[in-house]
C-alpha cells in the first residue's frame, strides 16, 4: 500500500472561509472477470487506538428481496467485527446500494453527524471492500482531526479498491 500525504496549502487556502468538511473519493476498479458483482464497501473512522468507531457509509445490496443482501455483510470482516454486527441494516443515513466501477465522492460536513462527534486527535479512515465470488481489500488512511490546514491523504488498493483519497478542509 502506498501512502501519500500532502498539505496543499497554496490553492486550497482560499477555501478556508467555507464550512469545514471532509471529502472521501473512492475508486472502484473495473475488473475483467467472468462473474462480476459490485463490491460491498464499508467506510469508517477509527481513533488511533482503534477504540472509537465512527461509521461513515455502507454500500450493500439493499434491493435484494427480504433484505437478503445482509447475508454477505460479514464478508467485510473487519467492519463486521468492529461495528457491523452491532447494527441493524438497512440504517438511515448509513447504508445505500452498491456502486458501479468508477470514482465516487462522499462529502461530510464537520458540523453535522457523524463528524461533529469526533474529539480532536489522530484517526484513520478505514475502507473495506468485499466482492461476491471475488476478493476483499482493506485500506487505511491516517489523518489528524480537526485539520489545521487543508490536507489530502490517500492510499491505493491493489485488487478490489483503486485510489482512496481523503481531502480535509478546515
Amino acid at each position: 500500500m502506498r501512502l501519500l500525504i500532502t498539505a496543499a496549502l497554496s490553492t486550497l487556502a482560499a477555501g478556508s472561509s467555507l464550512a469545514a468538511e471532509a471529502t472521501i473519493s473512492v475508486d472502484i476498479p473495473q475488473l475483467n472477470v467472468a462473474e462480476y458483482h459490485k463490491p460491498y464497501v464499508a467506510m469508517w473512522l477509527e481513533s488511533a487506538d482503534g477504540g472509537k468507531i465512527t461509521n461513515l457509509a455502507v454500500w450493500y445490496d439493499v434491493k435484494h428481496k427480504d433484505n437478503e443482501g445482509t447475508k454477505w455483510l460479514k464478508d467485510m470482516r473487519q467492519w463486521w467485527r468492529r461495528t457491523g454486527r452491532e447494527l441493524t441494516m438497512p440504517a438511515d443515513g448509513l447504508s445505500s446500494p452498491t456502486r458501479a466501477p468508477g470514482t465516487h465522492q462522499l462529502t461530510f460536513d464537520a458540523a453535522a453527524k457523524p463528524l461533529n462527534g469526533l474529539t480532536p486527535g489522530n484517526y484513520q479512515l478505514v475502507i473495506e471492500a468485499a466482492r461476491e465470488v471475488g476478493g476483499r481489500e482493506l485500506l487505511r488512511v491516517p489523518f489528524e482531526w480537526p485539520p489545521k490546514a487543508p490536507a489530502t491523504a490517500q492510499a491505493k488498493g491493489e485488487s478490489e479498491l483503486g485510489t482512496v483519497a481523503l481531502k480535509l478542509t478546515p
Binding site: 433484505n67 437478503e68 445482509t70 447475508k71 454477505w72 455483510l73 463486521w80
Partner: peptide
C-alpha cells in the same frame, strides 16, 4: 461460524 443476515 460468523454469519450475518436475516435467514442464517
Amino acid at each position: 461460524t460468523v454469519l450475518s443476515g436475516t435467514d442464517a
